[in-house]
Write a protein that binds this DNA or RNA. Sequence first.
DNA 1: ACTGAAAACTGCAGGCC
DNA 2: GGCCTGCAGTTTTCAGT
Lengths: 159, 159
Amino acid sequence: MDTIDFKALSELMMNGRMTWAELGSCLGLSSPATAERVRRLEDQGVIKGFTALVDHEAVGCALTAFVAVSLERPEHRNRFLQKIMEMQEVQECHHVAGEDDYLLKVRCKGTRDLERVVSDTVKSIPGVARTRTTIVMSTPKETPSPPLFPEDIIDATRR
Amino acid sequence: MDTIDFKALSELMMNGRMTWAELGSCLGLSSPATAERVRRLEDQGVIKGFTALVDHEAVGCALTAFVAVSLERPEHRNRFLQKIMEMQEVQECHHVAGEDDYLLKVRCKGTRDLERVVSDTVKSIPGVARTRTTIVMSTPKETPSPPLFPEDIIDATRR
DNA sequence: ACTGAAAACTGCAGGCC
DNA sequence: GGCCTGCAGTTTTCAGT
């Protein structure tokens, strides 16, 4: 077990961009060895990729909501999931135990958009028996995530 | 309005690492101009940083759960939030409208860990009146997120 | 996994629109 | 103000050990 400088490592991860040499020095490795390990992690699927983490509010995605969905019968599942996959506003879809079947995390510009997503789109999917929407007022803690609508970033770039 | 190659752009964003030149060519820009724009986005706070996106299951974080929390009185809020901030397992904390006050997204290794987090830690915070935990069985859709426990990645590195 | 070279990329300067 | 071209400094990559 080598000597890993966790403090330096987390500092490095905080401000984002880093070189293999920097990362390696936290781990006590040279840059080629570090690059090799990261490449292996990608091959194994541990690392899915690399992205920018965006402040969704800053790009006009100010509203977050959780939508619990109940399905009438299991037969409707595939069609439902297929539709969900296509919806950009749905950031997450979890199959949950308990009263409801699915829990969606939805992100959009405002209440008008939410209405469209929930009432028009989700409820129109065959087999959706009922939905319960919970609006997020503020989020004190959240690990930032990749952009949902890359085109909005492009717009922000121009300002 | 310039000509943006969205198809190439999203392909590029999918497989992660890219050079300014590559990104720029999708936008119809040279590398210095591209780097400059991204730097500006960072200054504006639109881009919070850059990270690796990890498959949490692959690093042993196999259990996801949503925990709804009700607080007795507003006075308890600050202390509650402070404690939440310290908990690595809590990936998100949202202040929500409706029946409950907060909705936590929790990630941990297994049910044993969940018990510790919910029953021992969250419920022991002063002012927590009740919690309702919803277990996630599978998640058909989720944008990957940065690592919650960097040390687990280090371990995976060694395999 | 380390060292050292070639190749590639980034960042800065200067000029242009 | 924002963008493009060329050069110097780094960083990554690919040998060989």
